[in-house]
Every structure is written in structure tokens, then in C-alpha cells.
Design a protein around this nucleic acid. Sequence first.
DNA 1: TCTTGACTTAGAATTATTCTAATGTTAGAT
DNA 2: ATCTAACATTAGAATAATTCTAAGTCAAGA
Lengths: 139, 139
Amino acid sequence: MNLKEKLAGLNEKGCTLTIQRHAVLEYLYLNRTHPTVEKIYHSLKKKFSTISKATVYNTLELLKNYGLIQEITIEKGKLHFDYEVKPHHHFFCRRCNHVYDVDVVGCPLAGKKMIDGHRIEELRPYIIGTCSKCLKKRG
Amino acid sequence: MNLKEKLAGLNEKGCTLTIQRHAVLEYLYLNRTHPTVEKIYHSLKKKFSTISKATVYNTLELLKNYGLIQEITIEKGKLHFDYEVKPHHHFFCRRCNHVYDVDVVGCPLAGKKMIDGHRIEELRPYIIGTCSKCLKKRG
DNA sequence: TCTTGACTTAGAATTATTCTAATGTTAGAT
DNA sequence: ATCTAACATTAGAATAATTCTAAGTCAAGA
């Protein structure tokens, strides 16, 4: 879904479209590198010198609750965010700490609503390892 | 793998088997509830009043690096640990914050060594939702 | 017994996130 | 256009989780 559609969706649901919210969503739209909160905050700070961390956290939480972005808990102690919400796997490189999208077909959980009596609301299929770039550097 | 086997394995690899390391591993062996570091620390504190958080963190890291336990990053900002290292899915209930084991068959990643040129070293298939107990309480 | 290296400890430091109270902004009613 | 009430943002403080540090402990080998 493109940026305009997501912004329009927010508006329709009665959510005030502030400049900060627009900026956070746009940042994620333009930067598909699964940035951390820290990264998002510092990047936005350049354009909006008064933006506060609380706003960044609040906005990310809000956008997540509207289902417009995805929260990633793949790295210990740090949150990453992803503009793309369609279910897909994430790969975390323990050398360079980068988060990659990976395509895995045939996941038996796809489309499932329940498991063992628990209601499935979100899938977070994470893979940890060493990425191709780092492997080239020193196996 | 049972506790004795894991302890013996540690010993064979030249790792000193201190009382603290024994206690941490045994705690995880006896408590299969995917406890947080906090929970582990406080529980051990009752028996070993002088055990320090640093030791708990160091030990968990060490046991993880020996492949004897598994680290779980399913809950934002908190680490959970699991005695069981055989690949299996985890379900996190966003109401009660409990981590459940769930059995998912037919995962296409099972046994895979590489994906998109990245080396797979660990699978962390997480599912988020509302658990059966919480659903019974209030839908 | 002495030395060395590895381990543990208490608490300080750091990092990530959440909270708070004051201020600013918005949209609807007038 | 102005007022107002609700909502949003801000800076910085507070909290929570984790890591670091320096001193002390322990165990094995010389």
C-alpha cells in the first residue's frame, strides 16, 4: 500500500494527521531498512528540530495499532519498524545487525486464525544468522 | 536433552562448572515457563542470596553460546529463556504476557542452512496474539 | 604456599522506553 | 473570526533492562 493510501486511511478513521505523524510514516515509506526508533528519531530531528522522542514512540505505537506499520523485536533490547505489513520473514545478521526481508514460501501458518486454542493476531517469523555481505568479508 | 547431559557437555568442553552456572541451568530445566532474566534472578536469589545480576546475564549468554539454551526476543524490551533448544514455535499472549510453546508442522525452513545467500544459524518463529486462557476470560 | 587466571560480586553506568506536566494545536460550536 | 475542549507535542525526568567496572573470591598448578 502506498503512502497516500495509508495517510488517507488514517484520516478516514478519524485520526488527526499531524505533521509529525506524516513525517514518521513517510520516513518509513522512504527507508525500507527496518530502522530502529533511535535511527528514526535522529533522522527526523534534522528536518523537525523540535520533534521529541515521546512523539516518535507514540506515533510508532499509534501507526502500529492502526495496522499501518509493523514492529520488529528481532534484535534484543531494540525495536525496529517496517513500513510493509504484508506477512514476510525477517533475517537478522548478528555481525552487522542489519535486518533483511526474506521470502519464504509455504509457511503452514499463513492464513491461520487459531493455534492450540490461542488466537493468532500477528506472525513474526525471524531468522538469525550471518548475512551474505558479512560472509564474503570473513566467512 | 536432560540436565546431566548438558552439564556433562559443558564440562567436556572445558567450561568450569560453577555452582551459579549449575543453578541457572537447573532453574531453566525445572521451570519450562520461558522465564525472563528478572524472574530467573529473583528466584535464584532465594537460594543463593549473593548471586548477582551480572552473573545471571553472563551465564545465560554463556549457556546460549554453548547451544544449551535458547534466547527468546518475543516480548519487546525483555529477554526470555528456554531450556529446550530443539526448533519450535513460541506464542506470546499480549494480554497476560505469557510465552507458550506451540507445535507447528511443515515449516519450510526446517533443516535449511541458507536463505538468499545468508547463513541461517537460528530460527525464531514467533506468533503474537491472545491465549486461550485470556480468551475465556473476556473474548 | 604462592601465583595466575577465571569467576563472581555490588554497584555504577549506559541504553531503551515510558511518564509527566506544561505548552501548543486542532476542529467544532458559537 | 473567536472560544473552548479535546487532543497532540515537547523537554526532560523517571523507570526498566542490560552492560560495564573494579575489587574480591576461588581453584588448580608451580
